[in-house]
């Protein structure tokens, strides 16, 4: 990965976290005993995928997430399914599923509304099949209709996340996630390089080579299932 991409990633993370750096300028702290027992389960549906399905005629997708808290950490799982049908001068179809799991670290555990800003890491895996059909105009052989397909292609990659959850009403939260997707690896496809990868996005950058890094943004509508009372850690004393 080039230095400029790393610089961009650093700048985005720095600028987004800037407000919280100011919050942490506090003189003294109270040491509290960590509570590692889970206290609640978040179950969410990815709103951005539902909106995308409604407004983008070529794409149907569904995604969701579950996370469980352990002290300041969250064990998180995400998954979804995607179906793409791009109808241009060619027809490209892609159907598949994706699954992501990893850990989040809550940066503001003492927030009295249990809002959350967290940094996370995910391992992601996708499995899909795709097909490309197009007419090739050739001055020697005439117009030929060509069809190529890949079956059971798998891809995996790593994601760095900045996540924000805000309580909006009773047990309902809104979540937003900024993702930086890296280290993509696609298993050898049968006939052609896939144009899309479910869960990752566009695999092929226009006119050049495949995308080695990607950036994504997701919105979630989350329900909080609380199964035991957990004390909010005391805020640091000034």
């Amino acid at each position: 990965m080039s230095l400029s991409i790393l610089k961009s990633i650093y700048n985005i993370l720095f600028l987004t976290l800037l407000p919280f750096i100011g919050m942490s300028q506090i003189a003294d702290t109270v040491r509290i005993k960590p509570d590692w027992n889970p206290s609640r389960l978040h179950v969410g549906i990815e709103g951005s995928r539902l909106i995308g399905t409604a407004i983008k005629g070529y794409k149907r997708s569904l995604g969701g997430m579950v996370d469980l808290d352990f002290h300041r950490f969250l064990l998180a799982f995400e998954g979804g399914a995607e179906e793409i049908n791009r109808l241009k001068t060619y027809e490209y179809t892609n159907q598949g599923t994706f699954f992501k799991w990893g850990l989040d670290y809550n940066l503001i555990p003492h927030n009295k509304y249990r809002n959350m800003v967290s940094l996370g890491l995910r391992y992601a895996k996708s499995r899909f099949s795709d097909q490309l059909t197009f007419a090739e105009e050739n001055p020697w052989f005439g117009t030929q209709t060509l069809q190529f397909s890949n079956k059971d292609v798998s891809a995996h990659w790593t994601e760095i996340l900045l996540r924000l959850n805000v309580h909006v009403w009773k047990n309902v939260l809104l979540g937003a996630v900024l993702r930086i997707e890296l280290m993509k690896n696609v298993s050898a496809p049968d006939q052609f390089i896939p144009f899309d990868i479910p869960g990752w996005g566009r695999n092929w950058k226009s006119g050049t080579d495949d995308k080695t890094a990607n950036m994504g943004f997701s919105y979630y509508l989350i329900y909080n299932f609380s199964f035991r009372k957990k004390e909010i850690p005391l805020k640091k004393i000034k």
Partner: peptide
């Protein structure tokens, strides 16, 4: 031979 979509709004190419 490798088919590819050079760009989203362009024709597919070989």
């Amino acid at each position: 031979v490798q088919p590819l979509i050079y760009a989203l709004s362009c024709e597919a190419a070989i």
